[in-house]
Computed example of a mutant assay.
Amino acid sequence: MKRILQAAAVAVGLAATTFAGSLPADAAPKKSFKLAYTVYIGFMPFAYLKQSGIMKKWADKYGIEVDLIQANDYVGSVNQFIAGEIDAVGVASMDGLTMPAAGGVDTSVFLITDYSNGNDIVLSKTAKTVKDLVGQDVYLLQYSVSHYLLNRALQMNGVEDTSAAKAINISDAEISAAYVSQDTVKNAVSWKPLTEDMEKVPGTTVLFDSSKIPGEIMDVFIGNTANIKDNPDFAKAVTGAWYEALGILKAGGPKADEMRAVMTSAMGTDAGGLQSQLDTTHFFYTPAEAYAFLTSPENEKIWDSIRTFCFDQGLFGQGATSVDSIGIEVADGTVLGDKGNIKMRVNPTFTKEAIDGKL
């Protein structure tokens, strides 16, 4: 999963406008839905939901159909969501803010799956501390969570001017090989499994990782707010199926082994590779844990940090004049930014219904 942050392009805005304008005011409830996810550890339980029939069972309960689609192109899947071609998509929370929300789509987070808890790292062949990166080139995928991680690492180590370490853009397809083979690439930021070979380079030091900023690099499923409001059974079925699968993974035993095997195969890794990524990913195994996180005061602070980074990097688009240009409604109803332009909403309703046994 590339987890790319992108500025809202004109085409995105047009797609959002087209989709919003195409919704009939009195549309009948839908019966068929599409949910897309890409190959990333936090989303891979959906591969098991599809193969095991758990998703179908929950969809049948609500008299609907839910087609789970493993997408090859992360950005492409988000663009399909923006255009209204799919009903929900798995994203890093920042991408939900800077792509559909900044592009004009009123977007709701209806399920949180996990957050990176060491999956993303800052590493160097020469530097021994984060402060040593000042004045140095740091290779990363620009405007990605890697870029965000570098900025937070610098801030937390007393470097106020985060541009003091120069971010050099490199694709996720190239970064591992470049770090391993090129002497000029001394500092880098990336994520597992790309970093596994990078960490083996002699002299390499891990300077910072996402476990130092728990919750800030979170992965979620988003839906069009109007679609979720008009078709709550879709969100209920997905949420119920998700927590049934996570309960299996948490409990262990033969069914969990079966689930791990499906996830391993879908990711194209082996058992060790899967475990390594599980070890550095904080799954919300129960709805109670997810709800507590979503409704905590800390979650509001996280969204404030995310939006500040996005605005500073110009990811709200040319029309955004301040960090408050886009409104973000967090789980307790508090709005960060423009209350008249809320485009990102954290909706804990379905997680709470899972807790209360109402799904």
Rank of each mutant, 00 (worst) to 15 (best):
M1V: 10
M1P: 10
A9Y: 15
A11F: 13
T18G: 13
A20I: 09
S22V: 14
S22W: 15
A47T: 09
L49S: 06
Q51H: 03
K57I: 10
A59R: 14
A59L: 13
N72H: 08
D73Q: 05
D73S: 14
S77V: 04
F81Q: 01
A83L: 10
E85H: 04
V89F: 09
M94G: 04
L97H: 03
A101E: 01
A102F: 03
G104I: 06
G104D: 04
V105F: 07
I112E: 11
S124R: 03
A127Q: 14
K128M: 06
K131W: 09
L133R: 12
L149Y: 02
L154W: 04
G158D: 05
V159D: 01
A165C: 09
K166P: 00
N169E: 00
E174Y: 04
Y179E: 12
D183M: 10
V189K: 01
W191F: 15
D197C: 02
P202W: 04
T204Q: 07
D209T: 03
D219V: 08
F221E: 15
K229Y: 13
A241I: 12
A245D: 10
G253S: 05
R260G: 06
A261P: 04
A261E: 05
T269E: 07
G272E: 15
D279Q: 03
T281V: 09
A288R: 14
S296C: 15
P297M: 15
W303P: 05
T308D: 12
F309R: 08
L315K: 02
Q318S: 11
S325K: 00
D332T: 02
T334Q: 05
T334S: 05
I342G: 00
R345G: 01
T349H: 08
E353T: 07
A354N: 06
